[in-house]
């Protein structure tokens, strides 16, 4: 996967709507032509090509009902694809489930636990289901996971008595029971208050810094934008964009807008400096900023005697980009 350094290497690149093909060894998740058609003919996921680089925090974005959860269920072997193939941690699904899944922590579609058991007993139950988990360290690992999500004090409380936020945290703790190479978190901040959301975000970053790949699905753009290195965007079962955040931004370079009574003169200065796509208006000039420092551009203009009435850098938000991609607005008030 290409890493964008932002030094103008891709200044003219169009938005990345391509399927990034990386070698499977570099990817925690690879999907090729993944399709799920439910009985009744509804196509939930349609010819999905997906590559999640190892070590990335991958935001899997899309409106509700766009096929995110179905994709996650296929990746985890819960449902079988109608066609196509996927690999998780380099092992083909569903054959490699047994060897891959112990290294995958997952939160799928919200928490689900036994209401009459304590949080600790619930986690021990799931730990017992993992054939590779060591029973001798089970209690210690469960305790560590509970502490990590801030539930250490509520470990002995019955799940029934947990609040919505505590339940969500317990689900995340369940994903952290063992050392993981991949975390799959489906809407991990659902039901959490802003404080809890922040905590989960920083927890994800912390986990990612250990080298764990994190695959986070969300319908909240803000959440994804703040913590992800890579993003895939789903729309009605199809992946409409995939790449690093920088790559996705690439087609939407920041632009400078110079308000001046001498647009022609200003345009020639910008051209000389090498700014691309210079557009001259009646009393303003616009150009893509590229790798140039705005202050340098401004100094050059003034130095050349252009009367600068106003100088602004316009940065299109990712949200505008996504609205363009998905054809509908996201719920951005998260």
């Amino acid at each position: 996967m290409t890493t964008i350094t932002g030094e103008g290497a891709h200044e003219a690149a169009p938005p990345r709507v391509t399927h990034t093909e990386a070698s499977p060894g570099d990817c925690s998740i690879v999907a090729r032509g993944l399709t799920k058609r439910f009985r009744g003919g509804q196509v939930a996921v349609d010819d999905l090509h997906l590559s999640v680089p190892r070590g990335s925090v991958f935001g899997f974005l899309g409106p509700n009902g766009s096929g995110k959860t179905t994709t996650i269920r296929m990746l985890l072997g819960l449902i079988s694809p109608t066609s196509g193939a996927c690999e998780v941690l380099g092992r083909p699904m569903p054959g490699g489930l047994a060897s891959a899944l112990p290294k995958v922590g997952a939160v799928v579609e919200g928490p689900a636990f036994y209401p009459y058991l304590s949080g600790q007993a619930n986690l021990l139950r799931y730990d017992a289901a993992d054939p590779k988990a060591d029973p001798r360290t089970a209690r210690q690992r469960v305790g560590a996971a509970l502490d990590r999500v801030g539930l250490g004090a509520a470990a002995g409380k019955r799940y029934r008595a947990y609040s919505l936020g505590m339940r969500q945290r317990l689900a995340i703790a369940g994903a952290l029971l063992g050392p993981r190479e991949l975390l799959v978190l489906d809407e991990p901040t659902n039901g959490l208050d802003p404080q809890g959301t922040r905590e989960v975000r920083s927890l994800i970053k912390e986990i990612a810094s250990d080298g764990t790949t994190v695959f986070v699905s969300s319908h909240l753009l803000a959440e994804v934008e703040q913590m992800c290195t890579d993003i895939g965007v789903m729309r009605t079962g199809r992946l409409v964009a995939q790449g690093t955040i920088a790559e996705l931004r690439a087609g939407h370079e920041p632009r400078v807008r110079v308000e001046t009574p001498h647009p022609a003169q200003a345009a020639s200065v910008l051209n000389r400096l090498g700014l691309a796509r210079v557009r001259t208006g009646e009393d303003d000039v616009e150009a893509e900023l590229g790798g140039h420092a705005p202050e340098v551009v401004c100094a050059e203009l003034v130095g050349d005697g252009v009367a600068v009435r106003g100088f602004t850098v316009v940065r299109p938000s990712l949200e505008e980009l996504f609205v363009g991609l998905t054809g509908e607005g996201f719920d951005v008030d998260g």
């Binding site: 072997g77 489930l97 899944l101 112990p102 799928v108």
Partner: peptide, 9 residues
């Protein structure tokens, strides 16, 4: 779903 992703098999 959590038992199967544990994975219980």
């Amino acid at each position: 779903r959590y038992l199967l992703t544990a994975p219980a098999g």
